[in-house]
Amino acid sequence: MSTLHTVNKTPFERNALQSCVGHLSPGDALLMIEDGVVGARKGSSATAMVQAALASGGVYALASDLDARGIRPEDMIEGIQRVDYGGFVDLVAQHARTVAWL
């Protein structure tokens, strides 16, 4: 059964997203939370990493953290799904394990 990976750091300061994407297994999901959601914006140097994750499995970003940082749905890389806290819980429940990339 697959893994849920969470990333809570911006890819422009830390390598958490890069390292996470390098350790995905097919079918794994990636959830961006806290500062991690800035990686969801399209047209950045991190976009290729996010697209690699999209090719592997679902990519999600926490809506409240996106909203707080002024990242609108139309700013986001196509394919990333917005989830609320309930959706976060559902993702945890749907996967065998959760790995936090700090």
Binding site: S2, T3, G22, H23, L24, S25, D28, A96, R97, T98, V99, A100, W101, L102
Partner: peptide, 18 residues
């Protein structure tokens, strides 16, 4: 290798990150 590390993660019941 990195690929082996990814496979190792996929075998676990619990993963704690630091």
């Amino acid at each position: 290798s990195r690929a082996e590390m990814a496979a190792l993660i996929a075998q676990q019941d619990v993963v704690l990150s630091f």
